[in-house]
Amino acid sequence: MNITSNTASAALSAYTSSAEIKAAAEAKAQSANNSQATDKSKKEDALSLSKTAAAYSGSIASNAPFFPVRPGMNADALVLGVSQPDAVSSSKGKTFPEVATDARKRMDDKYAQMKTGDKPYSGSVEDRNALMGDLDRRSLNAVATNEGGQFSKDEQDAAKALMQQQARLASGYYSGPDEQKNNWKDPFANDPIGRAKAALNFLQKMTPEEKNTPQWLSQHMTLQNALDQYAKGSSSESADKKTGHFHNLAEILAGVETDGAASKNPQNEQIANAGNSMMDRIKALMPSPT
């Protein structure tokens, strides 16, 4: 009898069995770790989505009164665009031409919905908000710039006015129905620097197409430079005088009135003409460099 061979075989078998058991245990542990990591990731994603949803819900609730609509319709995307101009919904995953085509279809559907409802589209503020109520800012910009030549002058003007309204509200200036004005609280009433920072933050969150324009670059550079120069201070200017620059800057950033009250065709020529002169006035009010 070959005792040595039998002993070696038994030892090898025992080792193999032990190795298999160890490997199985390690695989089980790894699987458990992966499962825990996946669960953690899912929980974190869910928490993130929950926080985002809560933030969006809060923004919509607080600004909804300033975007009235006809009964049975909503303007959630317009309202959300005040605090979250970079929020994506209607334009998600689309090229800019596709965004325009989608916006055209959405608006045509709204026209049809109104026509089969109480009455056809009237051009009122309520109907304008309802017509474009589910367009995110990128979709609004496609309408405002007449991407693909698919939109009427009135539609372009309405989209421009809504985009301007979002920017005004975001920087603390009221823009909306007269009857809601008393319910508005300017968060930057005593904080002109905070207002300028809010305006800069809004600019930074604008859509890719908006950022790819000379106007956006000029506005962004001017605001950033003004804030940088204020932060550095100037030996030739007192703190009160420097703060005064920002009070003036804040007034200029208000732009023109675009609440569209009782107007079927918002006066967007004023908005377009105000752009260049506004930036010239801002530059003139900037603190002198040190």
Rank of each mutant, 00 (worst) to 15 (best):
S50K: 12
M73L: 06
K264H: 11
L200H: 08
A11K: 02
Q150H: 06
A53M: 06
Q166N: 13
P192W: 05
A29I: 04
Q270A: 04
E210F: 05
Y15K: 02
N225P: 07
K42W: 14
E251A: 13
F188Q: 03
L217K: 15
S91H: 10
K242C: 05
P266G: 02
L200K: 01
A11M: 10
R138A: 15
G176K: 10
K28W: 12
M279S: 06
L169I: 03
E257R: 09
W216H: 12
N74T: 12
D186M: 13
E155L: 04
N6G: 15
A159Q: 10
K28H: 07
T222S: 10
A272E: 14
S277Y: 07
G194C: 13
D108C: 09
E44M: 10
Q224C: 06
D178E: 14
S13P: 01
K283A: 08
E126D: 03
F188K: 06
E44Y: 12
K185R: 14
S59F: 08
S236H: 14
N33W: 01
E98T: 05
P287F: 01
P287A: 06
L47H: 08
G93F: 07
A100P: 13
Y56R: 09
M206C: 07
N63C: 11
D109I: 11
A24P: 00
H220D: 13
K197S: 02
A46E: 15
M132G: 04
A37Y: 08
R168G: 00
Q229F: 06
S41M: 12
P214L: 12
S218F: 00
V143C: 07
P192V: 13
E155G: 10
R281E: 10
Q267V: 07
I282G: 04
H220C: 15
S234N: 15
G260D: 06
M132K: 14
D157W: 04
N265G: 02
G275A: 15
D186T: 09
K197C: 02
L49I: 03
P208E: 04
A130T: 05
Q204T: 14
A29M: 08
G58E: 09
A250D: 09
M206V: 04
T243R: 11
T145W: 02
H245I: 02
T207P: 06
L140C: 12
P266K: 13
K232E: 03
A144K: 14
D134Y: 09
S171F: 10
R137D: 00
D45Y: 02
W184F: 10
Q164L: 05
N276M: 11
S235A: 07
N183A: 08
H220Q: 15
A55G: 12
N63G: 05
E20R: 08
S238W: 12
E251P: 02
